[in-house]
Design a protein around this nucleic acid. Structure first.
Length: 423
DNA sequence: TCTGGGGTCCTAGGACCC
DNA sequence: TCTGGGGTCCTAGGACCC
């Protein structure tokens, strides 16, 4: 008998986090938009009922927003990140181990709790999260991660489960899998769904019953493992230690198109500086940098996009060095006459800063000086807010700055924004 | 006028080597 | 009739996730 695994997932997480501090958002349709106020990335139940889909461009649903008074909020990741901390604090006592899978989902190793009624256990956990954060959740339980995930989706869809679906029970598992669309199974994307449907496989149960060899030859080992997991044979475990990161990226769409190299370079400089900050906060250095920018692929206008990858030696986390290298790449890739709408900086070959290989001609004093400069920069920007001290390359106008027309306050992380209750 | 951002894993195929 | 064989490393691109 394998250890039971649970998946706890927050319902309409970003919308729920916003509602925690603004009661006016309760009972009305709410949508949280992606960066630049571009797409709908979280919808309350009321917004879903109005037909708002995940990823809908906000400008294409303007009429619906107006007609139904849908509240559209800019995303506030500082708030969502801090609320996640609180959710996890509530969940912690209910599991032996936790794997934080995303900002609103965690896998729980329920080893040691087997002799309890796990449905009641999960209900108690949901109540705790709700009480501490006001955020509603659903829980799926199963012998494998895939089944826990599937149970979670079933609990969300079917009110019969009252928020908790335990798929360790075989009759219940079969009942759910036979009614579960194959394209909704975790790990089945549009390409795989198309292929298996051609074979007449339309449900999770049919996918489970697919011959393993056929799964392997049609897909990859990934599909083979997926079939095993649906059968209750674990192919993955709850991972409790965070793996070393392989890459890091800072990419943004612009608030308005950019046609001038220096202006573009301002944005790229900001992203490179931010990428450096991220590296340093993880204690890493990078060995390779990619700079990229492109035009709006949805627009009926001439298109151009390019990227350049350059190596960083010595490996570094120095923001100014990243800016210098990114500029070199951007100069190479630049073409006049286009309206660019997005740019980015990506870093690869990451290693821990202590393990950084030294190069032959490196000036240790100079390296030390630059490291202190970066530390000072992090200090200033940490204390007085991001972008307090920046290189001049970023420019002062920053017309490319992304739109965020309706961003909520930093209720939990900035003292001036803490809600005040008046008697 | 307005369509996000940041990740991971896997495979195929080329380069290179003995 | 039948192009040597086998190994590693790297990269690009696809697929998937939230």
């Amino acid at each position: 008998m394998s250890t039971p695994i649970a998946l706890i997932d927050c319902n309409s997480y970003y919308c729920s986090a916003e509602r925690a501090f603004d009661p006016r958002l309760k009972g009305v349709p709410v949508v949280v938009a992606s960066n630049n106020d571009g797409c709908a990335i979280a919808r309350s139940d009321e917004a879903k009922a109005l037909g708002i889909k995940m990823g809908d461009p906000v400008h294409k649903i303007k009429d619906k927003i107006k007609a139904h008074g849908i509240r559209v909020l800019s995303s506030n990741y500082t708030l969502y990140g801090d609320m996640q901390r609180r959710v996890l604090a509530a969940v912690e006592p209910f599991a032996r181990d936790i794997e934080v899978y995303s900002i609103d989902e965690s896998f729980l190793d329920l080893g040691g709790f087997e002799d309890r009624d796990l449905v009641a256990h999960a209900q108690a956990m949901r109540a705790q999260v709700l009480q501490w954060t006001t955020i509603p959740t659903c829980v799926g339980i199963g012998p494998t991660k895939t089944l826990a995930k599937l149970g979670n989706a079933a609990a969300k869809k079917n009110p019969l489960f009252d928020g908790v679906a335990d798929l360790r029970d075989e009759p219940i598992r079969d009942w759910v899998l036979e009614r579960f669309p194959v394209e909704d199974v975790w790990g089945v994307g549009s390409a795989t769904a198309r292929k298996v449907k051609d074979l007449g496989i339309h449900t999770a149960a049919a996918l489970r019953d697919m011959p393993v060899k056929q799964a392997r030859s049609m897909g990859t080992v990934v599909l083979e493992r997926l079939v095993a997991e649906l059968r209750g044979v674990p192919a993955a475990v709850v991972e409790t230690i965070e793996p070393q990161r392989k890459g890091m990226a800072v990419t943004r769409s612009f608030g308005q198109p950019v046609t001038d190299f220096d202006v573009l370079m301002g944005a790229i400089a900001q992203y490179a500086m931010r990428a450096g900050e991220k590296l340093r906060s993880h204690g890493l250095v990078a060995g390779r940098l990619t700079v990229l920018f492109h035009t709006n692929r949805f627009a009926d206008r001439p298109q151009y996009g390019a990227s350049r990858t350059l190596s960083l030696h010595p490996m570094t986390a120095d923001g100014l060095e990243l800016v210098r290298v990114a500029r070199k790449g951007a100069e190479h890739a630049w073409r006049d006459g286009y309206a660019y709408t997005k740019a980015g900086v990506m870093l690869e070959d990451l290693v821990s800063a202590e393990l950084r290989p030294r190069t032959l001609f490196e000036d240790e004093t100079d390296t030390g000086r630059r490291e202190r400069l970066m530390a000072a920069l992090d200090d200033i920007n940490g204390k007085f807010g991001r972008f307090t001290a920046v290189p001049g390359t970023q420019g002062f106008k920053r017309e490319w700055q992304m739109r965020a027309a309706a961003k909520s306050p930093a209720y939990t992380t900035r003292i001036a924004d803490v809600p005040v209750v008046r008697a």
